[in-house]
Design a protein around this nucleic acid. Structure first.
Lengths: 176, 176
DNA sequence: TATTGTTATACTCTATAACTATA
DNA sequence: TATAGTTATAGAGTATAACAATA
């Protein structure tokens, strides 16, 4: 999402060009703002993306206070609940390509949140574990994530929230 | 989304490492696959993103047959229904940063789908219009988009689909 | 021969600063 | 002084090919 998404929410003040004769009815400059996306709004994919970007933008702001990005959070959360996963396992379950995981993991280790422990019998594999500092971080970060997510969707009732999650899962769980 | 998302949907065959003593109950290698994301699945943002990626992956495949990417489609669709919009207007309403729009527009013009018409009185502004070829393309592409979106969400009833769109819009329309 | 982890690399998307020409 | 459009550039995120060490 572009930076302007978060900051330039005011309406455009650019005058309509009227390069064509204006329609009979009063279609001024302003209505274009809504109408321009009207056709896209029929698409479920478009709506899901817009909502996801709205929710995630909020989530990312809050994560940044912990010096984390979404991928970091996903990895640390997985290790928090399933210590000892290997790089390969994490990549498969979080849909990260192994070459892209190398740098990510290096950062998490440099920050002192993750450590490697070689597998006792398989010299290729290395188990990944949160350090005590990593565990403390995730206790905070996971609570924050839950709260952040709730606040960003505070316009929904509890029933609506549950319905929404159920329908969204119906879409993507089909794929697995 | 990584390429593996579309192709490597089979279950992992990597054995669990068991670097720690296994829990009392039978926690084998396989259950990790589901459990690893269990905590994320409570988050609306996570679910919206997963669903959006699923829907959009399908959409992108179909778009590619027309040599289009999502941003191209958005721009052409806006121009299809609102001819004469300026670059600035398109950028604001589709949330594209002007510098990133330059190359995108250049491609659309090279492909013969869009043309510029200078504003008669404002020398800075240029109106954008679909060419006849661009109009023919979008007649096909928009029909395809609707069908693609329907098919990718065919596991939902018509009522569920409408509910889902309504709830998603409730989230992101708050922002505008 | 297959798998784990890695390096190098490239492409797309997104972002900022700063320029030009017009108003 | 402000706006429309542009250039150059940088940073994420994501992708592929190929390698060394180990099984």
């Amino acid at each position: 999402m572009s930076a302007s998404a978060g900051t330039s929410n005011r309406r455009t003040r650019v005058a309509s060009l009227r390069l064509r004769p204006p329609p009979k009815t009063e279609a001024a400059a302003e209505p274009i703002a809504r109408a321009a996306t009207t056709h896209l709004e029929q698409l479920l994919g478009y709506n899901a993306r817009r909502a996801a970007l709205t929710l995630i933008a909020r989530f990312m702001e809050d994560l940044a206070e912990h010096d984390l990005r979404p991928a970091d959070f996903s990895v640390l959360s997985a290790l928090n609940h399933h210590p000892g996963m290997t790089s390969r396992q994490l990549c498969q379950h979080l849909n990260i390509l192994p070459p892209n995981f190398v740098g990510l993991l290096r950062q998490l280790m440099q920050k002192g949140w993750v450590r490697k422990i070689p597998h006792p019998t398989d010299g290729r594999a290395v188990g990944l574990f949160l350090t005590p500092a990593g565990q403390r971080l995730m206790t905070q970060a996971e609570a924050m994530a839950l709260q952040s997510d709730r606040e960003a969707s505070s316009m929904l009732s509890e029933t609506e929230r549950k319905t929404l999650i159920r329908l969204l899962q119906k879409i993507y769980l089909r794929d697995e």
